[in-house]
Amino acid sequence: MTDSRDDRALLRAWADGEQSAGETLVARHVATVHRFFHNKIADAAPELSQRTFLACLEAADRFEGRSSFRTWLLGIAHRQLLRYLRAQHRDAIELDVEEQSIKVLLGRAPTSPTVRLARHDEHQALLAALRALPVQMQILLELRYWEGLTVPAVAEVLELAEGTAASRLHRARARLRDMLEDELGREQAETTIRGLAGWAKGVAEQVPRKKNDV
């Protein structure tokens, strides 16, 4: 049942007509692709995942193995998502993934992911906050922190310059934090708080933020 071939070999075999290689490849990556679509357009996730794997099969010749297969596949998924949104979104609004959330682009509230997903109220709030972000920010965060992609890989999927991806990732995090704070009135625990002189807990010394001159 287990096939020890690497993704590239499986893809080539699938393209040459070996169905079982395709099945193995899909099994390996279906979760990633599904996750990519699920928190955006839950009801279309199976359909979009299908289109993604089909497009990947069609483009198999063009996969050179310079990036990992998963990164390459996510790039295809990303293009499928944009294509889908372009076809769906109402014409009154320009498709602008840098500014508009999935809700605005779909012209309807996206179907919420299943309750099973949200093991916790807080997770539910977080998933909702993600969906309220501009789509590109949502994707940036999910790829980086759910899929564990490196910044260069995220940049490749979104077809952005690396510096742009890095700074947008920063902005996305800040935006998400703001949204969560608004919602929950909660802030992160600071590690700078240090006990001092015994019980005088919370007597914090502060380190100036300037590091050194540039």
Binding site: A31, H38, P46, S49, P113, L176, L180
Partner: peptide, 19 residues
């Protein structure tokens, strides 16, 4: 918190069946 809210792989079962 973001990492903690990552949907786990079992959620993809339906999509996998479809594929």
């Amino acid at each position: 918190r973001l990492s903690a809210a990552r949907p786990d792989d079992s959620d993809a079962a339906h999509t996998h069946d479809h594929l």
